[in-house]
Design a protein around this nucleic acid. Structure first.
Lengths: 246, 246
DNA sequence: ACAATCACAAATATATCAATGATAAAATAA
DNA sequence: TTATTTTATCATTGATATATTTGTGATTGT
């Protein structure tokens, strides 16, 4: 019972916010991990290559060298499990699309409980399937092969970042696409502007709430036949917006 | 046993009503806490970041910067326990939906006893799981169960903010929806106009009690077959209203 | 080109009041 | 006592003024 796993696992945290590092560090130390930390991408990359930690927690937004590049280069050399930290839900798709071998994603603000669990899970998995590249699986849910959302005459191809209405390809900007996608991923569910701002613009965004309205209008101009009586992207007055089911 | 916790805990109260601050202050001082106070969101935020209190009591409706933004920004940097004060029950759902990491909610008017208990509990919890983000709402399982209330021929979809009667979708305004929802959440229970005003309109609302009647009427016009003999939303003369069971 | 913000108009919801209608309680007569 | 009428109370309804929310064009910044 006493000497179970004497080898201490090392976790490298790469984040430019000291507060985040502190929280992660405190909790992972408590769990018995050794912690390395870096505040920019370049330092992080070097540390990763030199120290070969058992897991890396990697923020996307980093000075000097962005998280995605770090991820790619590390995975290029070692198969160290990497958990990506990101502020925007919408960003996750982009990362997935890039297939750069991240093993897991956590969106801020995160629960530490969940995070610690994920760290453990990923280290365990790496131990078992040692050196086997479990790249595509991720810890994500059984990501459906079919990367498409279809609701009535609306069709969203998540891989191609392409939207079709009544068979016709619609050209949306990224922001517009993300809003539409978020709404369409839960048709019928009314979503407040606040939630949209948090999920699409990111939880660190504190801009004008009307920004959502304007973006919605632009989407409507492109997908609705009659802007004044929308049939797809509907307003729930006093609450927010939703995508009509059927 | 003797030297338990000598360090004095600090509580920051952010509320624009002096009366509320006074009550909270008095009672928490009595319990041995140090009190900081702010009357608007901006001051509150700055105080929180500078003083790092052990707990924050935060009103939603605030001048300059609303409570939700303050909550978000504070949690962004420190994991200080935050108790949200809100006047409307209906508002709690919205807050929960936002997942902004508040630790607890209390609806006004609150009992001082309960409030003090909650303050203690939250500070204690923070001490134990120091720095752990116990975001109760965040660890949400994917897709909770059907968010629906069904009573006889009445059907309320809480996600879609949609009401069906005899299978037909009824278009209610937000206020109407909230009243119906409140009544339907406890079918058969007679609810006074006063309680409805407090729970739906908010305890700070001092308008005409007849407002409830009018809202009820409008609901009836939409859901009852014969307005003059309601079968769903029933009047208990001299008391209030209730939803007929079955 | 895209995104954000602002200000104002338009649409819609809400509160309030006064009049009317319904019901229960009280008073009165049989 | 019981039945009938009166009175007081409470609820419903319609009309309307007020308030809020949303849509939209213009403007600016990136």
């Amino acid at each position: 019972m006493e000497q179970l796993n004497k080898d201490v696992k090392t976790v490298l945290i790469v984040d430019d916010e000291q507060a985040i590092i502190d929280v992660l560090k405190f909790n992972l130390l408590k769990e018995g991990y050794r912690i390395l930390e870096a505040k920019d991408g370049l330092t992080g990359l070097n540390m990763a290559l030199e120290e070969k930690p058992d897991l890396i927690m990697l923020d996307i937004m980093l000075p000097k060298l962005d998280g995605l590049s770090v991820c790619k280069r590390v995975k290029n050399t070692y198969n160290i499990p990497i958990i990506i930290l990101t502020a925007k839900d919408a960003e996750v798709d982009k990362i997935v699309g890039l297939e750069l071998g991240a093993d897991d994603y956590i969106t801020k603000p995160f629960s530490v409980r969940e995070l610690v669990a994920r760290v453990k899970a990923n280290i365990r998995k790496a131990d078992i399937t040692l050196n086997e590249r479990n790249v595509t699986t991720k810890t994500q849910e059984p990501q459906k092969k079919e990367n498409k959302i279809e609701i009535g005459e609306l069709e969203i191809d998540l891989d191609k970042f392409e939207v079709k209405v009544r068979g016709k390809v619609i050209d949306l900007t990224l922001r517009e696409f993300e809003v539409l996608k978020f709404l369409a991923s839960q048709p019928g569910q009314v979503v407040t502007r606040e939630i949209l701002l948090e999920k699409v613009w990111g939880y660190e965004y504190y801009g004008d709430i009307r920004t959502v309205d304007v973006t919605v209008r632009r989407i409507r101009e492109k997908i609705e036949q009659d802007t004044s009586t929308p049939r797809i992207l509907i307003t729930k007055r006093g609450v927010g917006y939703y995508i009509a089911t059927k």
